[in-house]
Design a protein around this nucleic acid. Structure first.
Length: 854
RNA sequence: GCCCUCGUGGUGGAAUUGGUAGACACAAAGGACUUAAAAUCCUUGCCCUUCGGGGAGUGCCGGUUCGAGUCCGGCCGAGGGCACCA
């Protein structure tokens, strides 16, 4: 019989229309239902969707569909992270208004997402650049301002002296501005900050409650917050001026007897004295050049600037400790001052060796003789016992820390303290395309929040990008206003908010997206929050997730419903990679412009030879991208979705391949042809009870495997199980006398199981065999555990741990008779002959191991 | 530099708790069907073999165990993170 092919173009369009018209994926307002909030990180509307989006949203869609079939009321919304730099760049380069550019991108990407058949509740769509969104954000800003969680301080920015503009780190390439090519300098600007450090402890501690987060992400956040327990110590200075004391922070107070210098950050208050010293300023310039990332600091040679100050050691009489400024000490961390103990810290040792400072070991490694222990170029940072340390001698590091802190506190020379590496969140951006900060600067110098009734402070639309810098700053009228209370003249804040603020509460907005009064409603949030499953790229492991955890907690404090943790479950997916193609003169080439001839590759139009490079994550700059649109057109949405779930575990990178997607297409066709075969069975002859039982066992095992693998995010394994089951089913179909009812039943179960993965072909087959369009209303199949108990098991017979035979035995067969039976097997007999059995091991229904001496 | 993760066929990967290593897929080779191609289906996949089976084997070296891809120790290699792109 000629089987008609599955026409994905027609079928997919048909189901899209049906789903949309009947609002199949709309979350129910019925609060008695058990809920499931499934969220993927919302996209930046850059123009077109890319494979990374396809993968991200396919993963989420499987979960959302799976949960719906399991009876949950699922919230699966989508929105747009639509403020940000690319829109401004487009405005500068193509003379398009950021708003128009953004909105047309949104339209384009939305229709692409619809093509993929994602089960999204589009009625809740939001866009962060819309004033109906950001007006609530301005309100939250003011609330935090009132709570004292927002403040202003001077802070360094990357400044392009030619374009007269602030640059983001990514706009600084090799120390030069990306557009002008000018050397970027560090400039101090007064900027707004959120006091996230007030939450350092709670954000750190609360990580332990997130049991469904990847350990890796939690660890990254822990490192970022960087809690460390230590001690502040005051040193007396021999100084003739007002600086009589200096406070340092250390996590190693136990090494105080090995202290040989004090090092200060270049912007430490003591630097004031040297601000006119040209040598010091040269040194300072050198330090600025390094930048302030941990990586840069760790890799740079340590150097310092000696001050005239000398400090007294707190316990060793007459011991004088020199004071330096050093390039590896940061003002932002601790007190901006440390004491150096070179014997037990590599940085301190490098520094001490450079300036010929004392190196006195104070920790002796275990089982080492004091006489043999010398420090040269490598610091000893492990545990040990204290030496050369007066009253601390012979204690362990832990004991010494405890005792010395006690002593410091008693003698009022210092105190135990916990510090965090986490710094406050700078939220000012000197850019146009962002949420305006609702603040005015009054002519009398007062900083005045815009009253709530005057919100939103809307972005002006008539802006020009002719001049470099912030268009809000240049706008002829926008920033001039009056204080509503006093009538005094005022100037608006022209900085806008970091776009990470926009994405720090959008998941709350989805709970009440159509509420114009409030950003979110507490009753809605009580029902929907927290997000049960959040899915996105690991690149957001730190900032976005940490900021969201902070912001949602901060704005919900004292509202009667505090959001302690917004994301209960987190999954971070890997990237989509593809081979790279380059011409011999080093030009990146798009895959669709490359053709293969006898294992050699050429550029289509020019016939230039192409060099195939390694597989890397798809990026526009390397041109190793495949446009989802073209693949959807050719193979259909189901095949693309299937590809995204196949082969690679979702947390790992996936390699895009043309053969792979073709294979997925074949599989979609295959399940279609199997369903046709079953649908067209004419013979209704019953199959035997035994065959029926076997089929049932197969199906039950299959249901269990698919359920387990979805719940555990092993989608690639689930896909393999689908292949396996399909192969088996196809074999049985050609072997067995057909029983239509039986096979239709199996097919229906199969279709429900595959619906979350490939909904279009599933709905089409379902409709064909049932004449109904209610696949989305079906219940997820359950399995019977007793059916999975097999009557017979293959028992592996090992001799000395090596597989030698397989024995088919009744379930639960007596141990001794199993030993007897296995000893009868030819191969076993042969190998055991004349040898003594020392030990017999039996693992129920699985394995026997005879241990014999050779 | 510091912190973390991962090393399994030609390739992507599977192996829930220590118990048949290589499921499933891609690629390759051979075959069937066909006038032919496409599509589809079958077989093969390290070494030795008397075709029963035997040997080696999960980056390398060692350990624990009746039994190790899985646990422990030490090497080697690859990747990721380390403060305003989103």
């Amino acid at each position: 019989m000629l089987v008609e092919k599955f026409n994905h173009t027609v079928a997919e369009k048909k189901w899209h229309t049906f789903w949309e018209q009947n609002k199949i994926f709309k979350a129910s307002a019925d609060r008695s239902l058990k809920k499931f909030y499934c969220l993927e990180m919302f996209p930046y509307p850059s123009g077109k969707i890319h494979m990374g989006h396809v993968r991200n949203y396919t993963l989420g869609d499987v979960i959302a569909n799976f949960k719906r079939l399991n009876g949950f009321n699922v919230l699966h919304p989508m929105g747009w992270d639509s403020f940000g730099m690319p829109a401004e760049n487009a405005a500068i380069q193509n003379k398009l208004h950021p708003k128009d550019w953004t909105n047309s991108n949104i339209q384009a990407m939305k229709s692409q997402l619809k093509l993929l058949g994602f089960s999204i509740d589009w009625d809740r769509e939001i866009s962060t650049c819309d004033s109906s969104y950001y007006k609530h954000q301005q309100k939250y800003f003011l609330e935090l301002y009132k709570k004292g969680l927002v403040y202003k301080k001077e802070s360094l920015v990357n400044w392009d002296p030619v374009d007269n503009t602030v640059l983001a780190n990514e706009q600084v390439v090799d120390g030069k501005g990306w557009r002008s090519g000018a050397n970027v300098i560090q400039k101090k600007l007064s900027q707004w900050f959120f006091k996230i450090t007030d939450f350092a402890e709670v954000l750190n501690e609360s990580l332990d409650t997130l049991i469904s987060w990847p350990e890796k992400v939690k660890l990254m956040q822990k490192n970022w917050i960087g809690k460390s327990k230590g001690c502040e110590i005051q040193f007396n200075l021999n100084s003739s001026d007002e600086n009589k004391k200096i406070t340092i922070f250390t996590t190693r107070p136990d090494t105080i007897f090995g202290a040989s210098f004090i090092a200060l950050a270049i912007d430490h208050p003591l630097a004031k004295k040297y601000e006119k010293d040209s040598k010091f300023n040269e040194f300072k310039e050198e330090c600025y050049k390094i930048g302030n990332t941990d990586e840069a600091i760790a890799k740079t040679d340590k150097f310092g600037f000696k001050t005239e100050y000398v400090a007294d050691h707190p316990f060793i009489k007459n011991k004088k400790i020199p004071v330096y400024f050093a390039n590896f000490v940061l003002m932002e961390y601790g007190t901006g001052a440390i004491f150096g103990c070179p014997a037990h810290d590599q940085r301190d040792l490098d520094f001490a060796n450079k300036y010929n400072l004392d190196v006195t070991p104070v920790i002796l490694p275990p089982k080492t003789d004091k006489k043999d222990f010398k420090i040269k170029n490598e610091a000893y940072v492990e545990n040990g016992t204290l030496i050369n340390s007066d009253f601390l001698n012979d204690l362990t590091v832990e004991e010494a820390k405890e005792l010395i802190i006690e002593k410091f506190e008693k003698e009022k020379k210092g105190k135990g303290k916990t510090t965090y590496r986490l710094r406050d969140w700078g939220i000012s951006r000197q850019r146009y395309w962002g949420c305006p900060i609702p603040i005015m600067y009054r002519e009398d110098g007062a900083i005045v929040p815009v009253p709530e009734k005057d919100l939103p402070v809307k972005l002006p639309e008539d802006v020009s990008f002719e001049k470099p810098g912030n268009p809000l700053e240049h706008h002829p009228t926008w920033k001039f206003t009056t204080c509503p209370e006093t009538g005094m003249k005022a100037i608006r804040e022209t900085d806008t908010l970091d776009t990470f603020v926009d994405s720090s509460w959008y998941f709350l907005r989805f709970c009440s997206s159509n509420n114009s009064e409030k950003g979110y409603d507490i009753t809605d949030a009580k029902y929907w929050m927290p997000v049960d499953q959040y899915i996105g790229g690991v690149e957001h492991a730190i900032l976005h997730l940490l900021y969201s955890r902070f912001f949602s907690r901060a704005i919900s404090m004292n509202t009667g419903f505090e959001i302690k943790e917004p994301f209960q479950g987190l999954f971070t997916q890997g990237m989509v990679c593809h081979k790279t193609f380059k011409t011999e003169d080093g030009q990146w080439t798009y895959p669709e412009d490359v053709i293969e001839k006898n294992n050699n590759f050429f550029e289509k139009n020019t016939n230039k030879k192409i060099i195939v490079g390694s597989s890397e994550s798809m990026s526009k700059s390397k041109k190793n991208v495949v446009d989802p649109q073209s693949v959807i057109d050719m193979y259909g949405a189901d095949a693309v979705r299937w590809f995204m779930l196949s082969d690679s575990p979702p947390e790992r990178d996936i390699q895009w391949s043309d053969e792979g997607i073709a294979g997925c297409y074949k599989f979609i066709q295959k399940i279609w042809s199997i369903s046709e075969k079953i649908h067209n069975i004419k013979n209704t002859q019953k199959i035997s009870e035994k065959e029926k039982t076997n089929l049932n066992i197969l199906l039950n095992k299959f249901i269990k495997e698919i359920t387990y693998n979805i719940e555990n995010f092993h989608f690639n394994v689930a896909v393999a199980k689908f292949y396996e089951f399909t192969n088996n089913l196809n074999k049985i179909l050609s072997d067995t006398d057909c029983d239509k009812d039986e096979f239709v039943y199996i097919l229906k179960q199969f279709i429900i199981l595959i619906y979350p993965f490939t909904p279009h072909v599933a709905c089409e087959i379902w409709e064909k065999i049932t004449n109904q369009n209610d696949l989305h209303l079906q219940k997820w199949p359950s399995y019977k555990e007793d059916l999975l108990k097999r009557e017979q098991n293959n028992i592996v017979i090992q001799i000395n741990g090596k597989k030698r035979a397989i024995l088919l035995a009744k379930d639960g067969e007596d141990e001794n008779s199993l030993f007897q039976m296995s000893l009868e097997l030819d191969n076993v007999k042969k190998l055991i002959k004349n040898k003594k059995i020392i030990k017999k091991v039996y693992i129920k229904n699985k394995l026997i191991n005879f241990v014999i001496n050779e």
